[in-house]
Design a binder for these strands. Structure first.
Lengths: 121, 121
DNA sequence: CGTCTATATTGACAACCATCGATACAGACA
DNA sequence: TGTCTGTATCGATGGTTGTCAATATAGACG
C-alpha cells in the first residue's frame, strides 16, 4: 500500500477491524476501560488485544494510563470528533448540473463523448 | 480474518483505503461521476479503479448505471447516512461511575483487583 | 459483420496484517 | 531480594489485499 500518512486514512483503517471496532464501542461507554477487560469481549488472545490497542493508540483513537498493574484506556474525544467530521463530509452535498464526464467539460481532453447522457438523476 | 459479515465493518473497510476514499469524496460532489474520471484523480491503472469500484459496490457505498459505453457511479445516500450514524455512535456518551475493571463488578470472575483505582477521570 | 472505446474480469505477485506462542518488562507485595 | 500479575514486544505464520498486464465483455458505429 501507500503507507498512508493521511490521518483520515489512519483513523479509518484503525477502526475498520472487527476487534478494534468492538474496543472502540466498549470505550464509547461512560468511563475508562481496563485493558484486561478487552480480552473477554473480543475473544482473542492477550497479545492480540495489546496489538490492536497499539494500533488504536498510534492512530490517535485512544490514550492509555497506568494505574498499578492495570492500564486504563480512554477514547480520545478529539479523534471521535474528527471521525464524525470525516463521515459528515461524505454525504451528497447538493445537485448542480448537466451530466457529462468531468474531463469533457473544461479541457475536452478525451474524444468527445457527445451522446445522450442527460437525465441521469 | 473473520470474513466480516458485519455491514458496519464492510462499510468501514471499504472506506479505509486512500484510493477508495478519494473516489467516495469525488462522489460526494453534486452529481454522478463517470468511471473514466477516476483513473485521473487517483493515479492508478484502470483495472485497479475497477477493482476498487467493485469493492465499494459490494459494500453498498455506490451504485452503477450504464449509459452507452460509460458507467456512471453515484454515492448511495443511505450508505452515507449509515456511516454517519456509525460515526456518531463512537463518541463518549456521558460519564457514570466508579472506576474498577468491569469484570470485577458483577461476577467477580477475576482475582479481585481491589486496590486503589478511584478518581480516574 | 468488424472495429473502436470503456469497463470488468482473470491471474499472478508482493506487501501487508491479524493472530498467537514465547518471552520480556513493569509494578505490587512479601 | 524474589514471586506474582498484568501488559507489551518479538518472531513466525497463514490469510488478505492492492496492484497491474493480459484478456474478456459490452455497447456504439460503420
Amino acid at each position: 500500500m501507500k503507507r498512508s500518512l493521511d490521518p483520515d486514512i489512519r483513523l479509518l483503517q484503525a477502526a475498520a477491524d472487527p476487534t478494534r471496532l468492538a474496543i472502540l464501542r466498549e470505550l464509547s461507554g461512560p468511563d475508562a476501560v481496563c485493558a484486561c477487560d478487552f480480552t473477554a469481549c473480543c475473544d482473542v488472545a492477550q497479545p492480540t488485544v495489546s496489538h490492536h490497542l497499539k494500533v488504536l493508540r498510534e492512530a490517535g483513537w485512544v490514550t492509555a494510563e497506568r494505574r498499578g498493574n492495570w492500564v486504563w484506556y480512554t477514547l480520545n474525544p478529539e479523534a471521535a470528533a474528527r471521525f464524525r467530521s470525516l463521515a459528515g463530509g461524505l454525504g451528497p452535498r447538493g445537485e448542480t448540473g448537466a451530466g457529462l464526464p468531468a474531463g469533457a467539460i473544461g479541457g475536452g481532453r478525451r474524444p468527445l463523448p457527445v451522446v445522450e447522457a442527460r437525465e441521469l438523476a
